[in-house]
Computed example of a mutant assay.
Amino acid sequence: MDSTLSWLTLLSFGDQGWSDELVRGACLSLGISISAYLIGLMLGLIGALAKLSNSRVARGLASGYTTIIRSIPDILIIFLVYYSATDALRSLLGMTGLLADFQLNGFVAAAISLGIVQGGYSTEVLRGAIVAVAAGQTEAAYAVGLTRRQTFLLVILPQMVPLALPGLGNLWLVVLKESSLVSLIGFTELVLAGKMAAGATRHYFLFYSAVAVVFLVMSAVSTALLHVCEVKSYRVWRPA
């Protein structure tokens, strides 16, 4: 009984508990994941269009980008962005005499680095979805006088969304888990908050289990929402 009360006290809100820190860490993890995911979608769409363009240079750059991203561990990209980008920006600002002690914010570094990783995988998911749209749809759009931009926005995009959602949903779950990697650069997201609580109280099993449960809840909610989006997208854009 005393042990149970002790655990409940440690997981409570307020001065004696650590739930405040865990909730704050969970919110930061979600913020990083959402930001990185949106960056990845933008880079992925650009990369997919580049891979399908008539420009050999664009195709080469997009292929090189996806090959590099899928070959390098994500943690190395985080380190490169956080430390190398900080040094580069510090040098540039130092040349102008401004902010010689500049340090890239951990949240920004995490969002950018994970977004770059997401972009490499999103490129292939979106490219596959675009290719899966029947070629006759594009030909029909051109036949009625639509421009390339109008064809993409009005014809291809609505049909590719249901095809891309399963893959993009998996990438969201991946980036949600990978947000834990930013703890290695000292940014206090959910995993680092749990580690700090465990180290301060010596209740390692309790807090690491709590962190696992929070991730399970976020993943379960995400999976349910993604399923709803997939069902609605097929009903709206691909009616029977």
Rank of each mutant, 00 (worst) to 15 (best):
G31S: 08
Y65K: 12
R70H: 12
I46G: 00
G31K: 03
V57W: 10
A48M: 02
L76H: 15
I34Q: 01
F79C: 05
I32Q: 00
A62S: 11
G60A: 13
G47L: 05
Y37S: 01
R59C: 14
I34H: 01
L52P: 00
L45Y: 04
S33W: 02
R70N: 15
G44H: 03
L45S: 05
L76P: 06
V57H: 08
S53F: 04
I68D: 12
L30D: 05
S84A: 15
A36N: 03
A50W: 02
F79W: 03
S71L: 08
S55C: 07
L45F: 04
I32P: 03
A88S: 12
L43S: 06
G31C: 06
L43R: 01
S53M: 06
D74V: 08
I46E: 00
Y83M: 11
A62D: 03
G44N: 06
A62E: 03
A50K: 00
A26H: 00
G60E: 14
I34N: 00
M42G: 09
D87N: 13
A85Q: 00
L61M: 13
R70M: 13
I75Q: 08
S33C: 04
S71R: 09
A50I: 02
G64N: 06
T86G: 02
F79K: 05
I77A: 07
A50N: 04
I34F: 01
G64Y: 07
L80A: 14
I46F: 08
L80K: 04
S63D: 14
A58Q: 09
I46C: 09
L30F: 01
S53V: 04
I72P: 09
V57T: 14
L45R: 07
G44L: 06
L43G: 01
L28K: 03
T66Y: 04
S63N: 14
L76Q: 13
I34V: 15
L28M: 12
V81Q: 07
I77V: 15
C27M: 15
L45H: 01
D74Q: 15
S71E: 12
N54S: 14
A48I: 00
D87M: 13
M42Y: 01
A85S: 09
G60C: 09
C27H: 06
I78L: 14
L80R: 00
L61Q: 11
I69G: 05
D74M: 11
I46W: 02
L38D: 10
S55M: 07
C27T: 09
V81F: 05
N54T: 11
V57L: 15
A50H: 01
R56Q: 12
F79L: 10
R70V: 09
K51V: 05
D74H: 07
T67D: 13
I75D: 06
D74Y: 07
D74K: 10
L43D: 02
I69C: 03
S35E: 05
A58Y: 07
L49F: 04
S33T: 01
D87S: 13
M42A: 15
D87G: 08
L41N: 00
L41E: 03
L30Y: 01
R56V: 12
F79P: 02
N54P: 05
L45P: 03
D74I: 10
G40M: 12
V57P: 00
Y82V: 14
G31R: 03
G40Y: 10
R70L: 08
T66D: 08
Y83N: 11
A36P: 03
S84K: 08
R59I: 14
A58F: 14
I32L: 07
